[in-house]
Amino acid sequence: MHFEEIDIDQTHIRLKSDLDNVNLKGYILKIRSELKRYISLNRDFLLSLEPLKYNGENLPDIVLKMYESSTKADVGPMACVAGTISQMSLDYLIENGSDFSIVENGGDIALINNRNVLCGIYSNNEVLGNNIAFNIKARKHPLGICTSSGKIGHSISFGTSDSVSVISKSPSLADGLATRIANEVKGKDSESKVSNALETAENYKEYFNGVLIISDNNIGTVGKLPKIIESKDFDVKL
C-alpha cells in the first residue's frame, strides 16, 4: 500500500492507495494551475459566498465542477474547492487502475475501497470524544465524505457546529453541502441549532446519502449513514 502526503499551498493531501507509480502531485499541480488562472480573471469566483451564474463552455473541469456543486448546494464556488480536488484526484487514480484509494484533503475525503474502511469522525465533542468512526463497507464506486465545523479548521462557517459530515456520491457536492448545512447550526440552544440544520438538510436530500450533525450534547441525522462504531484505529480521519 502506498502512502503519500502532498502539500501545495492551501491543498494538503493525505493519500492511501494501491498504486505507487502515479504522479498525483503533478496532476494536482495542473488542475490547481487551471483554477488559479481562472480566478485571476474572475475575482468573484474567489470571493462570492453565494452561487454564481456561469456558462459551461470552455471552462476547466475543476472550475465547472465547482460551479455545478456550489449551485446545487447554494454556496459560493470556493466552498467546494477541497472536495472537488479530492474528487478529481480520485478519478485520476481510478483512471490509472486503482481499486483502493483514499484521498483526504483537509477533512474532505474521496475514496474507492475494495475492503472495509474506518473513517474517524473528529468533532472534538466533549460527549463523543474523537474515537468514533464510520464503517465504510467495501464498494466498487467512488464516495465522498466531507465535513464542516464552526469550531475547528480555517474554513468559513456561519454556524457553531462541532461537525457536520455529509456523505454523497459526489465529494465536490458533499463539500458544498457540509458548508451549507453547517451554516445553519445556530439558535438559542444546542437542540434548536441541530433542529435548524436538520430542516436545511431535508431540502437537499436528493443530493446526499446521509448527514451527521454533532453540536454540543445533541446529534442529528438525515438519510442513510454507514454504521458508526467506536475505534481508535482509523484508515483516515475527517
Rank of each mutant, 00 (worst) to 15 (best):
I214E: 05
S172Q: 01
G129H: 12
N131H: 14
I62Y: 15
L59Q: 07
I156M: 12
S17I: 01
Q10W: 07
D61Y: 09
D9K: 14
K227C: 04
E50R: 13
I132Q: 02
Q87K: 04
D91C: 02
N55M: 10
S89C: 03
I6N: 06
K151G: 11
I121D: 03
E4P: 00
Y27A: 02
A82G: 02
S165V: 11
Y204A: 01
V222W: 09
K151A: 09
S40C: 00
G220A: 05
K237Y: 11
D7C: 12
N23M: 10
S195A: 15
G220T: 08
T221D: 03
L59W: 11
L177K: 01
N42E: 07
E126V: 08
Y204W: 03
L46G: 04
K36P: 01
N217G: 05
K205E: 15
A79W: 10
L90R: 07
K193Q: 15
S33T: 06
N42Y: 04
Y92P: 00
I31P: 02
E184A: 06
G76A: 06
N55F: 10
A174C: 01
K151I: 15
L41G: 13
T179L: 06
N130K: 03
K193C: 15
I213R: 07
E184K: 11
D216R: 08
E206V: 08
T160E: 07
F158L: 12
K16H: 15
G159P: 09
K186N: 04
K205L: 09
S98P: 06
N114T: 02
K237F: 08
A82W: 06
T221A: 06
C119P: 02
Y122V: 01
Q10R: 08
D61I: 09
M66D: 10
Y38K: 08
S123Y: 04
F100C: 00
K36Y: 12
E34K: 12
L143C: 01
G144E: 05
I181T: 01
S190T: 04
I152D: 07
Y122G: 02
A73K: 03
E191Q: 15
N58Q: 08
K72I: 13
H141S: 14
D235M: 10
L52W: 15
